[in-house]
Amino acid sequence: MVKPLPSEPELLRRCAKGDTAAFGTLVSHHQGAVFNLVLRMLGDRETARDATQEVFIKAFRKIRSFERRASFGTWLYSIAVNQCISERRRRTTRSRKSEVQMSALDSEQDNAAYDPPGDSPAPDDRLGADETRRQIEHALTELGHDCRTVVLLRDVEGLDYNSIAEVLGCSKGTVKSRLHRARLELRHKLRGLLK
């Protein structure tokens, strides 16, 4: 979850006046979380980079319409989810495969990015960890868009149910049912890892 900034309200006030430097501070605090979500949603690193950039540009453009009911991070997530939906639609109209390209996640860059920091496991353990990660990611990609989004927002980004409901613009009950259904599906897909 994105760490709340003590000076966030002040930064937002400055951003509303068109201060790009203040917005730069917000970007540096939130870019990792937004990029992570977008990458998991779209699967392609380059596309995720462009989409993340677009998310922040849209956020800056709409910052005056931002209501302080939710946190800025939650608001950014909602923009990111919508951006991912637009991107998927664009892909569909281009008659491309809408499924997440696992090959993108297998690239060397991604391997470096996904390496858990601090630990230096043995080569065999590392291969096993990579395989486990790959299976989990693959299982996520096989989920429907709505279920995947809920799982990512809850288990990857760590949002509570209310925040997820705000991001998705749906009820808390819908979030609960979608999350439960997604987890049951994942349990079935990852049964090999659960033994």
Binding site: Q31, G32, F35, F56, T132, L190
Partner: peptide, 26 residues
Amino acid sequence: RTVALVRSLPRAEAPEGLERDIKVAL
């Protein structure tokens, strides 16, 4: 355990220069 597996996924770091690109675009 399923939830734990998903939560164990490493976080992807934002690519280098993303912040700069956003600033340039703005």
